[in-house]
Design a binder for these strands. Structure first.
Lengths: 193, 193
DNA sequence: CTCGGATCGTACCGATCGGTTCGACCTTGG
DNA sequence: CCAAGGTCGAACCGATCGGTACGATCCGAG
């Protein structure tokens, strides 16, 4: 495992651990809801270490959002792939996966949207837009494979359902949100092919 | 106009003016993106006046969110009513109204959702939940009048489309978002009746 | 064993935060 | 005309913010 080159104690692992722990705290409490001092004590690291790895609180936030977007998208894509070859099954699997997320007690909505709602720094907004791009790519692919007449449009409509279901689950109760959205999505898919 | 009872200079108007001006600034920059001092100088009022009327920055935020929720919901409801008696026309009118909103250069997403994403104070989250309740009421009413077999479910699916379209418009470009959402909504309505 | 770099804990920095206070206006009801 | 109360502007408060500095410690490569 050629992780560390000229270092001690493996800084790469430290960085990864900070990222992991900080993600949980900042997602639960909000990006501006916890200061760097408290954040460091919660994740068990000194401020100097955190700043050496990420330079800035903003830097930490951006690294965290990028990692999280990557994971979420790949998780949904994997759920679709695991559902088999039928595009309808793939679409249903995406919403079933979302429902699992909504049922998680720590679920507090989409971290990228939450971040973009407060920090309108350009970088954060760009990460959020890229996140939606990835979602759209996944959904448009399903629409294409299902033979939709206008897969770009259908993909965007499905994206709205995904994001809308997440918003409703976060702020209006998540029970059944994934199922209702899945049913709507399959209806749109049927009507478009 | 019996606005002021035992006062001078009409404090009610002052309060309304503060609310109006603060809404614009806080919506554009974010609730935590502008301090009370700058906020006061931007809206042309002294800190003492602001604090006498609202007690707290939180109090101002809550009053502002309540007013905004009221206005938005009534605006959409009015658009639906103006569309005539056909529930399909009413539903289409809601999404047309949303598209107008998305086209506004100052559009930055749903203020209630943005607020709830940062301040997870209970009061703010309750205002947001109430806001979604009102939306749901409007949409479920349309679903009922259209003779949908499960108007509660359809209403919730339409709510997801409304919120999803708003999210997509805010973070991924608003062009055509209302139209695409409207088409999806009408498809769902057709399939459910 | 020794030396370098990663880490820690703490103290510290200037800036800004939300909120209070006060003296000086100014407007208006009586 | 006078007293009462809304408003202003600026000074002020303690707390907290993001970020830096430094000496002590600890670990692993040579």
């Amino acid at each position: 495992m050629p992780v560390a080159k000229g270092s001690t104690i493996d800084p790469a692992r430290t960085r990864a651990a900070i990222l992991e722990a900080a993600t949980a705290v900042l997602y639960e409490r909000g990006l501006d809801g916890v200061g760097v001092a408290e954040l460091c004590s919660r994740i068990g690291v000194s401020k100097e270490t955190l700043y050496r790895h990420f330079g800035t609180k903003e830097g930490l936030v951006e690294a965290m959002l990028r990692q999280r977007s990557e994971r979420v998208v790949q998780w949904l894509a994997a759920a679709a792939v695991a559902a088999g070859d039928d595009p309808r099954d793939q679409l249903a699997a995406v919403f079933d996966a979302l429902q699992q997320w909504y049922d998680d007690p720590v679920f507090r909505g989409c971290a990228m949207l939450n971040a973009a709602a407060q920090h309108h720094v350009e970088t954060v907004r760009a990460i959020t837009a890229r996140h939606l791009d990835r979602y759209l790519e996944l959904l448009t692919g399903i629409a294409e494979r299902a033979g939709a007449s206008a897969p770009q449009v259908l993909g965007r409509q499905l994206l709205m359902l995904v994001e809308g279901a997440t918003v409703v689950a976060a702020h209006h109760g998540g029970a059944g949100a994934g199922e209702h959205a899945r049913h709507a999505a399959l209806t749109l898919l049927s009507a478009a092919s």
